[in-house]
Computed example of a mutant assay.
Amino acid sequence: MQRSPIVLLVAALFAGMTALLVIGSFVSRSPIPFVVAVPLGATAYFMYYHGSGKLLERLRRREVRGRQRQRERTRRARGDRDHGSFGAGPRARGGPRTRAEREARFGAGIGGARTEPGPGTGASSTAWRDGGPRERVSASNGPTTAEARSVLGVDPTADQATIKRAYRERVKDVHPDRGGDEAEFKRVTAAYDRLRE
């Protein structure tokens, strides 16, 4: 809130004049000072409301609420609910984000059909087998937690933020798009998937 001392001072002067006019109206038993005091008091109140910054804050809140309502109306009109950017829909948490990560996790078969998943796939992940429907795959072929920590070079007491940082640093070195080894990239991704569970 921004305060304006000059506006607050003028509001205080108007409030003082209003009080004097109300008192004068009662003393003189004439309604004319009271009639003049009412708009003067309203002016003093609005000047105080503006000078204290409350008016600006209220207008900002109203504008934010209006924008939120407009977004909600637009979303309802398009039929979108809980979608990510560009209408892509919500992303499954922990899923592969790039083509290289998907290939590292699932591998690519003949004609681009998905084959057996790579190491470190979670129990909830799925894979294409011979171009057929999706089947559940277990994570029994991934590295152990100790092996995963060794691959990423983190301590057993490392938290998720440290693990994520270590994974990002390792991926910069081993990513196939940056001239790294694809097998090593698969190992690093599998290790990260194991430690993220």
Rank of each mutant, 00 (worst) to 15 (best):
R91K: 12
R67N: 11
T98Q: 02
G89S: 03
Y192W: 03
A11C: 05
V64N: 00
F185S: 02
E135A: 15
Y192E: 00
R134S: 09
L152R: 01
W128Y: 13
E184Q: 15
R76H: 08
A19L: 14
R165Q: 12
Y45K: 04
I110M: 06
R194C: 00
G107A: 03
R129S: 11
R76F: 06
P96L: 02
E182Q: 08
G24V: 02
R93S: 11
F86S: 09
Y45H: 05
G66N: 04
G120F: 00
R168V: 09
M1L: 12
R168F: 09
M1P: 07
R165T: 13
R62C: 09
E116C: 06
D181W: 05
A123Q: 09
L8E: 05
R136Y: 09
K54E: 12
T43W: 06
S28R: 07
E182G: 04
G51F: 01
D82N: 14
G131Q: 09
V137S: 04
G109Y: 00
R69Q: 07
G53E: 04
D193L: 03
P5D: 03
A161K: 14
R62M: 14
G111E: 08
D181S: 11
Q160G: 05
R81Y: 11
K54P: 02
N141K: 05
G132C: 06
I23R: 12
G153L: 02
R75S: 15
L9P: 04
R134N: 09
D173E: 15
A12S: 11
Y49L: 15
E116W: 13
F46D: 09
Y192P: 00
T74I: 12
A113R: 13
A191S: 06
R170T: 01
E63F: 07
L59P: 03
E135R: 15
G131T: 12
A11E: 02
T189W: 04
E72R: 10
I110P: 13
D193P: 01
Y48G: 08
G89D: 03
T74L: 14
V154W: 02
G95R: 08
R99K: 11
R97C: 04
E184C: 03
G118Y: 02
K164A: 12
M47Q: 05
R69W: 04
W128H: 13
M1S: 12
M47N: 03
P119H: 04
R78G: 14
E184M: 04
L59R: 14
A44G: 07
F106L: 15
E116K: 12
D181G: 06
G118H: 01
R129E: 12
R78Q: 11
D80I: 12
S140M: 06
A104P: 00
P176H: 03
T157S: 15
T18A: 09
R71H: 08
V171D: 11
Q70M: 10
V38R: 02
I23K: 08
L56R: 10
K172S: 07
R76G: 10
G87H: 01
